[in-house]
Write a protein that binds this DNA or RNA. Structure first.
Lengths: 191, 191
DNA sequence: GTCTATACCACGATAGAC
DNA sequence: GTCTATCGTGGTATAGAC
């Protein structure tokens, strides 16, 4: 965290507090206390509480969009594309375990950026579903409702931030492999 | 909703608001406006905002505990036990789509009931993991880390409330069957 | 860049008339 | 059982000294 600007530090600490109590329950006084400052001093670095939320959420949302674009444009099979999406979520979640909480649960408190956020999320879900549909058409994936499949896989991936920090030592590659097996092959033992 | 007491009505409406904005962001004035009352009048039916949260969360948490106890004490195979747990989540979630949001995201704002809630949740997760471990020992389930399996399945089940209301017509039995296939057999097509 | 002081407003909750 | 009025607290944010 060297060479981190004071604004970046505030945003990082705020994300941690938002994960613990949610955006609405965290006050500027809470944030200031954690930063060893007075609340008024925060405003030399950020213009509002809302701005902090916007930076936390939109930064991560854009990473997912960029990642999905890369996966879409590849020539991989659908199963490989899915594995790449799983790896994308493990990577982004592990690098933003606090911010992911705000992305998942505090997006409704966005004001000016609410529309742009919703657009990114809905585009992401459509791309995801499209990959599943292609997989079904190509005979790679079981012909179960793509909606239910996407919901099942994506909610697991979106909740990774709750769970990654609990691992003592985080073997991200191992986690990615285990998740791929479970989400793609299921948990039943094949004989 | 006939024969519903005024207190039950307040709790039901509050759960809906909590799902939309989170416990902290919903004010007693918001709740009163939605109920076509003044905020002060709410206090003739409930003693505090905190009491509303407690009733919403603890009621549902106890349903899951009761359901898990029934599954545990059966003589079913582990796979059948898992299917029963999936059905339990579909049932409880569909009957409490608003309350599930508070259960998942506002439990940290519990005060006196925080400890009891955490105990119920942790017991539930331990029972769930135990069933997976038995399944592995019995050769029914793939020998992947039970932690990762439980995380993957349980986060999907815990997020059902986000998704059930989006279905135009809810065929709960079909949803249960599709989810069982996806979570247990995976999405890959077997040839 | 941080501080003290404070403006202004909304919060949960209570008192007491009707 | 609902209302008006209000209490005490604490919210975001600004002004201006240092």
């Amino acid at each position: 965290m060297e060479n981190e600007t004071r604004q970046e530090e505030i945003i990082r600490v705020a994300a941690k507090l938002f994960k613990e109590k949610g955006y609405s329950a965290v006050t500027m006084r809470d944030l200031a206390t954690t930063m060893n400052m007075k609340a008024a001093s925060l405003y030399n670095h950020i213009s509002s509480k809302q701005e902090i939320l916007e930076k936390i959420i939109m930064r991560i949302a854009r990473k997912f969009s960029v990642g999905m674009t890369a996966v879409k444009s590849s020539n991989d099979s659908c199963i490989v594309k899915l594995k790449k999406i799983i790896a994308l979520h493990v990577e982004v979640s592990s690098q933003n375990i606090y911010g992911m909480a705000a992305l998942n649960h505090d997006w409704m408190h966005l004001e000016a950026q609410l529309g742009p956020y919703k657009k990114l999320r809905s585009d992401y879900e459509n791309d995801f579903k499209e990959i599943l549909k292609e997989g079904i058409a190509a005979g790679e994936i079981s012909p179960i409702k793509p909606d239910v499949m996407m919901f099942s896989i994506l909610t697991t991936l979106r909740s990774l931030y709750l769970w990654i920090p609990k691992k003592e030592v985080i073997h991200l590659e191992e986690l990615t492999n285990n998740l791929s097996k479970i989400l793609i092959n299921g948990i039943i033992k094949e004989n």
